[in-house]
Design a protein around this nucleic acid. Structure first.
Length: 275
DNA sequence: CGCGTTTGACCGGCGC
DNA sequence: GCGCCGGTCAAACGCG
């Protein structure tokens, strides 16, 4: 008899726990969306600052061809799926005569991998089909060309090539925007290099895992490309963002009431969870 | 056998 | 016009 009571009690406990976890999950989802909002705000702010700082920068590209480096400031979103709110930054690109050909948003993502890994695979939550590989002149490492598996309905392409300066860094150049959500979990569940998170209709990828060596960084520099020296090379742990910008970001974060509220919720949620 | 990858051929833009 | 070069195509190939 007591055994039955104990079972009943544990069942109600479990239900209680389930409710609590569900509520916490909901809260976390809300927090996540708040954090993403803050991220977008910060990013726009940062882009603004970078543009102001970078306008005076001459870019002595030795490339003879028009290339993606000529409009590399058009999108710094990395694996973003094209928030249209960030599209206000390409107003100066209208000078280009054949700009209408460049229909795609171009973004770059730097991914740190092991140098021994020659696969040229960048896990970003989407499925790609390789359609070509080429050794280019300015880089002895081959460049791989990928199309989204949903092509032709999804026009997105990407190029993946090792950095000239640091062979352990893969440079993925994305062209276009996906017109479909990210693949479901079975695609990336085993990749181990990142988690795909879908917030509403805006999928995004973040490398939340701390146990993997892979590091995804956004190209927040002006992407001087392969010219010049190694000093412009993005390193995972030596950010190129000037100290002033770091200060600004920190200030923005700490003064943002939404961020504070989210932080408080996160901490209290964590404490609750531990108890 | 089907599907994805590889790889040499081909195409088109650009500079000279 | 020619050659270089990046990008794409498509047949061959390999793997499950």
């Amino acid at each position: 008899m007591t055994k039955f009571n104990v079972e009943e009690e544990s069942t109600s406990d479990l239900e209680e726990e389930l409710k609590r976890v569900t509520a916490e999950n909901k809260k976390l989802a809300e927090m996540l969306s708040v954090v993403c909002e803050n991220y977008n705000t910060l990013r726009n702010h940062l882009m603004e600052c970078m543009r102001k700082n970078g306008e005076k920068e001459v870019s002595p590209t030795s490339k003879k061809r028009k290339s993606e480096s000529s409009n590399n400031n058009s999108n710094l979103m990395g694996t973003n799926n094209g928030n249209s709110e960030s599209s206000s930054t390409d107003e100066e690109s209208c000078k280009k005569p054949r700009e209408e050909i460049i229909k795609a948003k171009i973004s770059r993502v730097y991914v740190r991998t092991e140098a021994s890994d020659t696969s040229l695979i960048v896990k970003d939550g989407y499925q790609w089909r390789k359609y070509g590989q080429k050794v280019t002149r300015d880089n002895p490492c081959p460049r791989a060309y990928f199309k989204c598996s949903f092509a032709p309905s999804c026009p997105v392409k990407k190029k993946v090539q090792r950095s000239v300066d640091d062979q352990s860094v893969l440079v993925a150049t994305y062209e276009g925007e996906h017109n479909h959500p990210q693949f479901s979990s079975q695609m990336e569940a085993t990749s181990g290099s990142g988690r795909s998170v879908t917030l509403g209709s805006v999928p995004c990828t973040a490398s939340l895992s701390t146990s993997t060596p892979t590091l995804v960084t956004l190209d927040l520099t002006k992407s001087q490309g392969s010219n010049d020296s190694k000093s412009t090379k993005p390193k995972g742990d030596s950010p190129k963002v000037p100290q002033v910008l770091v200060e600004q970001m920190a200030t923005s974060l700490t003064t943002d009431p939404n961020f504070r509220a989210a932080l408080v919720a996160a901490i209290s949620g964590r404490l609750l969870h531990n108890n």
